[in-house]
Design a protein around this nucleic acid. Structure first.
Length: 198
DNA sequence: CGGCCGATCCACT
DNA sequence: GTGGATCGGCCGA
């Protein structure tokens, strides 16, 4: 089942980050279908979170996508090299988002191998936000694409997330501080990172 | 308009 | 464990 709009349009971005564990992220890019099971996420709590691009209501052409309704893709370029994929959550005007940090490669393994130049496709290949976008073929030009598709999987290219009936054992979910946000002061310590222990 | 820096990754030691 | 790649976004002048 493709996650519906009302999964995303809730205010508790930290809860949504936790609930995205075990869901499957799909991409159809240039007609190629690939997917990965989400195993690690980070919540970015909009205007009150120093680590967020939209902290203090900062609104620019890049962050404008974060202010759209929940269920939209926010993808940006990091270090001039990597596209990082985020899920916009909450309601229009509230710029919350969840960064997908790791996936377990599922469908389209051959295409993924081709995209990252590897000869095998194991858990390692989907670990790290830059690598998630790399293997799924997601690019920062895809920022603003919808994740909600009312009429089933899109016929052309698109991005979406499906509930495949996997509910991680709460005891196996590890919460901790986010990665690479030292600049965020006290907010860098918030336990907004979630991952499924292996 | 110039300069700094980043929600990272990989090769190399 | 560490440093370089690499370039758009953001800020200050």
């Amino acid at each position: 089942m493709i996650l519906p709009r009302n999964f995303y349009t809730r205010d508790d971005v930290v809860l949504i980050a936790r609930e995205l564990l075990g869901k499957t992220l799909y991409s159809s890019i240039n007609g190629i279908l690939t997917s990965g099971l989400i195993t690690e996420t980070e919540a970015y709590a909009g205007v009150t979170d120093r680590a967020s691009h939209a902290f203090n209501g900062r609104r620019t052409s890049r962050t404008e996508v974060m202010f759209m309704a929940g269920g939209t893709a926010y993808v940006y370029l990091c270090y001039g090299v990597h596209s990082l994929f985020n899920v916009v959550t909450s309601f229009e005007g509230t710029p919350n988002a969840v960064l997908i940090r790791s996936v377990k490669p599922m469908e389209g393994l051959e295409a993924m191998k081709c995209r990252n130049g590897k000869t095998s496709m194991g858990l390692r290949e989907g670990t790290g936000p830059g690598k998630v976008s790399k293997i799924l073929g997601i690019h920062y030009s895809h920022s603003g694409w919808p994740l909600v598709h009312e009429k089933g999987r899109p016929s052309g290219d698109g991005l979406w997330i499906e509930d495949v009936g996997i509910v991680p054992d709460p005891a196996l979910i590890i919460a901790g501080p986010r990665i690479g946000v030292d600049y965020a002061g006290d907010d860098a310590l918030l336990p907004y990172r979630f991952r499924i222990s292996l």
